[in-house]
Nucleic acid binder design. Structure first.
Lengths: 124, 124
DNA sequence: ACAGCTGTCTATATTGCGTATGTACAGTAA
DNA sequence: TTACTGTACATACGCAATATAGACAGCTGT
């Protein structure tokens, strides 16, 4: 499990973990049924607390992308392609809705806003 | 001063205040030199603490959109049109950069992402 | 000069979240 | 049985947001 955590981020550790694991699942890097690292192992590897990994996994369970088997571990759930796309799209919409609306209220035109999105898409 | 505050939001009160005041300034509703409500008056009107309004105004001072005159009040600063646009654009970029990058990492295509932005722009 | 506004500063307190540590219990597998 | 797993507690610390209160200093109209 390759994760990139830093406590210099404005994101909390548990948010960084769930975001990065989710990305690997939705992008198809982790297929359905794949076992995830145990909370203790991941906590040890990433040098964070067990409860932090626990919270990150709980969040992903709540979203339906993984599930737990008591005494065995956490596993990637069965997700159809459409479900993956829907999840990614609704998460994106939820996260950019307020900034985009605010920018509009601040006087930016739709063209301005779409130009900025395009710039960001070309950053990487 | 028309503000719409709620403690049900995931935004802090001071963030709601600074965002809404900033929007009125950048949109041109509040011209340069316009006096803002005193922190005590606004706190009383909006039924929040003085320190909350203080923090919100401090944030806008830091951004350069308002300034304080000791013993008199807070006033909207002189801003050229280009400065207003630049501020709004850089704020937007900062706020949507991570969600957009994440969505890309999750497998959404640039077209998908721009489609969602367009949907949000048509919501209001 | 005074009263009544204003911003500024300080101190104290509460609440909730993120994070950490530790312990205990229950299920699984070699 | 041993050594893993997830689950569930209890406790604690730091920090941010928020609140309440007071004191000080600048401005302005009377």
């Amino acid at each position: 499990m390759i994760l990139n955590l830093t406590d210099l981020s404005d994101e909390s550790l548990q948010t960084q973990i769930s975001r990065q694991v989710r990305a690997q699942i939705l992008a198809g890097d982790l297929g359905a049924g794949t076992g995830l690292p145990s909370i203790r192992a991941l906590a040890r590897d990433q040098k964070v607390s067990v409860i932090t990994v626990q919270r990150a996994y709980e969040h992903l369970i709540h979203e339906g992308v993984i599930h737990a088997r008591r005494g065995k571990g956490f596993y990637v759930s069965e997700l159809k392609m459409k479900e993956k796309i829907d999840l990614a799209e609704s998460r994106l919409a939820d996260q950019i809705r307020r900034p985009v609306s605010t920018a509009k209220a601040e006087g930016l035109s739709p063209d301005d806003i779409q130009r900025i999105v395009k710039l960001i898409l070309n950053e990487n």
